[in-house]
Design a protein around this nucleic acid. Structure first.
Lengths: 342, 342
DNA sequence: ATTGACATGAGGTACGTACCTCATTTAGCT
DNA sequence: AGCTAAATGAGGTACGTACCTCATGTCAAT
């Protein structure tokens, strides 16, 4: 029941080992007819390359590059930590990981950062960045050189990226809306929606999902227009307090962005836990604290450890030309409440 | 920059390769003094065995045995499917997986099944079974022979098992209770609790957690004594219908067990979606259907794919004497509602 | 000094694959 | 038939580790 080896292929195809190697690795010097015979033997015997033996022979390293925004947003910090942890856990499997960052508000810096990444220093890239023409071009360049690309957290649907590792943000917004509606109860009320930036695709998609389900299933709850906090604590505090001052009928808050301390602080200063229904996104130190103390009711989350490991797995598989286990690489929309905090 | 090899250890310790091999693999014929020198060199250079190269040299296979109950319970079916999927995905990494089953209601058959498992045919065992003295003995026997053991889904805390792969069921019950309370709203009411069997540890623990949080946070909701469905559709239908007939003030149902079709069918026959708040456990074909159609409000779930992969990873790591990534092997209590169905 | 037991070293093969070199064979053209 | 270019084969080394054999060295006892 042992696995066929290159020697078995050589015998079955009636050729030498050198010819098998040439066919397997697309090296020149083999006629089409012979290529056919070797490939037939490969199919017939169900040969699958032993990637670990090949990596040993080749001294293969997998150089993965993660491109991340530099931002005070805590969620990105959790991503960085997850990458650091993955690096520690992968020391023994030939994977080298580096992080390339760009200031979140500087598209030129992003362009410059992407320029430093090439086939010469990267075997796979995972990128969390907005979709711009420059990003599209950089991805096309790398792909043309055979570098697999994973879009991380926020999809880049109009690029040639190989895979998206993240959640469906429309569905995440719908999930948030369903919970808000159910937590809210049957009385009428108004829900404030706080976003980081309406430019960010994930914020837009989440709001879309939220609006849909609130309209479909909880029409007695008024959903207010989005207010933007720009991932800035002072701005957030100002705009949220303004709404709370002007709308005493507010019964819930949906925080769409990647989480900030300001919202938690101002809620703490104004009211007791449980006064409003609060649903937020992403599990960070702040949202953990808020869940524990009852200031937030639920956090819609994605497992950053899983995301990072998945990105690495997918990039390696693409590099090796082998398949992935689709269910393993599917990132789930997680609902976290006080009692199931991981 | 490159990883030290056994040749580097030999040089640093001033001994031959054969001596390094003897020390690394605890072979006889080396003085304590020389062992010390070699181990010092290992520590100094930070040598880590290349397990994939060693496996190639040894033609190593990892023979994993999963011990599962035979039962109509759908959750166990999802476990089996997850194992089958993991087997397909692990064809290339030397892991052989087999399943040994025992009838769920037959402890003697379990004993017999465990007798067939030994160091001679197994390199690691994952077991989902009740904790009995016989199970304890079998685990002790296998452990004495160096076979690592993982308790699957239901912990075996009074055995020598190496690791538990599953969720904290008390916390799962608390999570269910929190959701039930929040979905329920502020009015008084009564919640029925349906269990598979009060003998099963996970059922007991979940009920414990549920009771605690209902008493702590939702004292206006009355929690009824458990009714047992014994994982039997006819029994379940009878006992649940009896309660619903006798208690028109029932406002919620908490289904603790591993899920059955009967509950869904009878609710369908009696009422429109959303009439009662229903919280159940485990994601199966039935509970998926119930969530999609709005008959159930939430399902507290554990990701069986993750569980199986985790068990295999942990057993392999134990076999190799290497560490695990704790956060990767932590199984989360997942909350699934209509909108975040995976 | 001699002998015996144990420790250690040297050298070799093996695993599956990658990659290289050079000799031999084959096929096509003149 | 002879020549040339391309295809193919044979043989070798390499990767890191496992595992084996046998020769050599060391040490203690007689």
């Amino acid at each position: 029941m042992s696995r066929p080896t290159v020697n078995d292929i050589a015998k079955a195809a009636g050729v030498s080992l050198a010819t098998v190697d040439r066919v397997l690795n697309q090296r020149p010097g083999v006629t089409e007819k012979t290529v056919g015979r070797v490939n037939a033997a490969i199919d017939q015997l169900g040969y699958v390359r032993d990637v670990t033996a090949a990596n040993l022979a080749r001294q293969r390293r997998y150089r993965m590059t993660f491109v991340l925004p530099e931002t005070p947003v805590l969620f990105v910090g959790t991503l960085r930590e997850a990458i650091a942890e993955a690096v520690r856990g992968s020391a023994s499997d030939r994977t080298d990981v580096r992080i390339v960052t760009f200031p979140a508000d500087n598209p030129h810096a992003l362009v410059r950062a992407l320029r430093t990444i090439s086939r010469a220093n990267t075997d796979g890239m995972a990128i969390f960045a907005p979709e711009t023409p420059h990003v599209r071009d950089a991805i096309a360049r790398l792909k043309a050189d055979g570098v697999p690309i994973v879009a991380l957290v926020s999809d880049l649907p109009n690029t040639d990226r190989d895979h998206f590792v993240g959640i469906d943000n429309v569905a995440a917004g719908r999930t948030a809306g369903l919970l808000m509606g159910k937590f809210h109860g049957r009385q009428p009320g108004a829900v404030m929606v706080l976003v980081s930036s309406m430019q960010a695709r994930d914020n837009v998609e989440r709001r879309l999902g939220f609006d849909r389900i609130m309209a479909e299933r909880f029409p007695r709850i008024e959903v207010l227009p989005s207010i933007e906090g720009h991932d800035n604590d002072d701005v957030t505090a100002r705009v949220v307090n303004a709404v709370l001052d002007n709308r005493p009928d507010i019964t819930g808050i949906y925080s769409i962005g990647h989480g900030s301390r300001a919202l938690l602080d101002l809620l703490r200063a104004r009211m007791a836990p449980g006064t409003l229904s609060v649903v937020a996104h992403e599990l960070t130190k702040v949202t953990r604290d808020a869940l524990k103390t009852g200031m937030f009711d639920a956090v819609i989350s994605q497992n950053v450890g899983h995301i990072v490991r998945s990105a690495i797995r997918v990039l390696r598989a693409k590099s090796d030309g082998v398949g992935i286990v689709p269910s393993q690489e599917r990132i789930r929309i997680e609902i976290v409440v006080q009692e199931n905090l991981p």
